[in-house]
């Protein structure tokens, strides 16, 4: 990472720490903020957070690896999370999944070469009455069909 990038990231993390506070209880909001802006939490960012909150880097790493929505490896600009839980599964998740994989040319757990989309499964999104459902970043889409899912993905930047 370039020095300039490091400096701007440090500054950004400092601002998040100022916003949420230096207590350990601010850890999740701070990490969520970094994740939102950078689509992952780099090793440098994790150590910066640890330094500013006066905790050990491994504790930050421990928390990052616990939560599904926090990542320490770079994700694409858009993260698509298709619900894999039972009712979505019953109403056509598999067909949607296959269509998305074909269209993007990647498997679940992978990121497109242009870094546009990372594809993941999620557990129950709370849209069981309207499955299949998926999250695209923080927006939820329901009643998916293969066609509808592809349409949504095509609009992504």
């Amino acid at each position: 990472m370039l020095v300039m990038e490091k400096n701007s990231l440090s500054e950004e993390i400092s601002k998040l720490v100022d916003l949420y506070g230096k207590d350990r209880s601010s850890l999740l909001p701070i990490l969520q903020g970094i994740e939102k802006n950078h689509k992952y939490i780099s090793d440098f960012a994790q150590q910066e957070v640890a330094r500013l909150l006066d905790i050990h880097p491994v504790e930050v790493y421990s928390v990052v690896t616990f939560y599904s929505f926090l990542t320490h490896k770079p994700m694409g600009r858009n993260v698509v999370r298709l619900c894999q839980t039972i009712t979505c599964d019953m109403f056509g998740k598999e067909a949607v999944a296959k269509a998305i994989e074909r269209e993007l040319g990647i498997k679940f757990g992978e990121t497109t070469k242009d870094k546009k989309v990372t594809l993941e499964y999620a557990n129950c999104l709370g849209m069981c009455d309207q499955g299949p459902a998926m999250l695209v970043n923080d927006q939820v889409y329901s009643h998916l069909t293969p066609e509808k899912a592809i349409e949504i993905l095509e609009k992504l930047k």
């Binding site: 207590d23 350990r24 209880s25 601010s26 850890l27 999740l28 990490l31 969520q32 909150l53 928390v63 616990f66 939560y67 599904s68 929505f69 926090l70 999620a122 557990n123 129950c124």
Partner: peptide, 18 residues
């Protein structure tokens, strides 16, 4: 941040505490 177990009240509290 995507963890079902945090619906358990003491896990939820742990999560709030970072």
């Amino acid at each position: 941040s995507g963890a079902y177990v945090c619906g358990e009240e003491t896990a939820l509290i742990e999560s709030l505490e970072g």
